[in-house]
Structure formats: C-alpha cells, structure tokens
Amino acid sequence: MKLAKSVPGAVTEAMVPEVVRVRQVIRETGDTITLNIAPPPRAGGFLFKPGQFNMLYAFGKGEVPISISGDPGHPSELLHTVRAVGLVTSELTKLQIGDRLGVRGPYGNGWPMERAKGNDLVIVAGGLGLAPLRPVIYHVLRQRGEFRRVALYYGARTPQDILFLHELEHWRGRLDLDLSVEVTVDRAGADWFGHVGVVTALLANAYLATDGTVAFVCGPEIMMRFAVRELERYGLARTQIWLSLERNMKCGVGLCGHCQYGPTFVCHDGPVYRLDSIGDLLSRREI
C-alpha cells in the first residue's frame, strides 16, 4: 500500500483495499454494530494507534473511513464500530460472520498518548465519538500506572443509544482502575436514573486541575465546540486540548482533496488536532 517512489516499477495503487473476513458481529444499539474482522496480514501484526482509522469497503457499494474501536495492545483483533447512517454504513452493518469486506489503513495520526503520560486525562465523548476513544481507554487500562486521574464523560442521545454499555459499567465498577465514568443522555424515559442533559453539563460539575491535565474530545462538532468552552472555563490552555475532527473523505491518503479542514488534510494531518493548531477554525461556520 505504501508507495516506493524510488522504485517506480514496484508502485501499488494506494486505493486498493485488502480483502478480509468478518469474524464476529457485536450488536451495540439499534443502529450500531461492532465488526470484528480478521486484520490484514502484516509483519508484527496489524499495529495501530488509538484514534487512527481504516477505510472500509462494502463490495460494490463504496468505502467509508471508520475509526478503529478496539484494543491497540491486542493487534490480532481489529474492531470497528459502525452506525448505519448512509448507503455504505448500512451495508457494513448488514455483514454477517464469514462475509468479506475491503480494508485500507491504518491512516491518520491518532491521540497523543505520550503527551498524556504523567497527567490527568479527561476524555469527553459524544455519541459515536466514544468509538475512536475506546482504544485510548484500553491503552490507559493496560498502562494504568502511567496516568494520574482518568475521567470519562460520555453523552448519548437516549439510554438505548449508549455504546459499550457493559464495558462502561465494568470500568466504573472496578475499584482498582480508578477510572471515573460519567454518562448522560439527552432525553430518557422514567426508567432512567442517570443524568439527563448534554455532556457539557457533566463537565460543568466536574473537578479539573488546570495544570497537568490533558483533554481528548470527540463527538459532533457542535458538542466539541461547547466542550472546549467548558474546558477552557476550567483554565485548560488550548495546548492541553485535543479534538478528533471529521470531514468527507474519499482516498484517506491526501490525494483526493475532500477532507480539507483549513490548511490541513484531516486524513493525514488529523483526525486528531491540538486545539491551538487549528486557530479559531472550530468557531467558524462551513470550514
């Protein structure tokens, strides 16, 4: 997949997926599944960084960028969490065990785990934005001693839309992990005893240290805008906040132009950005 320009004869088209098999399908919510696929063969396993993504191809239907939602310390298992929102994602959510799909990747820069070491880590996720952050949590759980306080603030639309529910409960229940997990939903029925409201409201009641804290934020752009506002209210500098952004993406390798976000390409300069590196773009419309 990578192109050796010095050996033109050996060049392979960067847009050719590798064909892989579905091992397992985990139903997460009414419209969202997690695909467990056999990773493309790589020397040393299919290594990826938390926050990276793959291009997934449904035969004849098309290709979409989907972040890897599995454990980076367990590279023999490749997980993607997909919500059926369009033609290709609908097709992907219909796949069964043994079905084939195409995969290219991993692409993108990923979350700066090194930078978070020795710090408090605040993870703010909205909706499906939890998927690209789950590898961060897996990483933290594997290397728990490297981080100080770790808190996850997660907002979903309704209790039925909560992703990875059992894992959230498990993480919250394990005293030895010291992982604070707060979940809120936008709206709920009478059987819901948790928080109701947007995820930024959870943040408003949090206790965050100004120094030695880094924040990873992923969710709808509007949610990130307000999350940033809350984090800045605590005194976090723009150099302490990272976001994972999303734009239309076709090639994933910087050739098709679609994923431009200001002067950057989300596919290779992102999808994770330190807030100060994008200036005031987050507050601009239609960038």
């Binding site: 192109l3 910087g254 290779h268």
Partner: peptide
C-alpha cells in the same frame, strides 16, 4: 508535488509523468 511528492502517490499520474 501534489500527486507524486508525498507519502502516497497516484500511480496513473506517475506512469504518465515517467
């Protein structure tokens, strides 16, 4: 520079330009 100067390049472009 755009199509053959980066980490990845367009093979069709490269073939024509060679």
């Amino acid at each position: 520079r755009v199509l053959q100067g980066g980490e990845y390049c367009s093979t069709a472009y490269l073939a024509r330009r060679q």
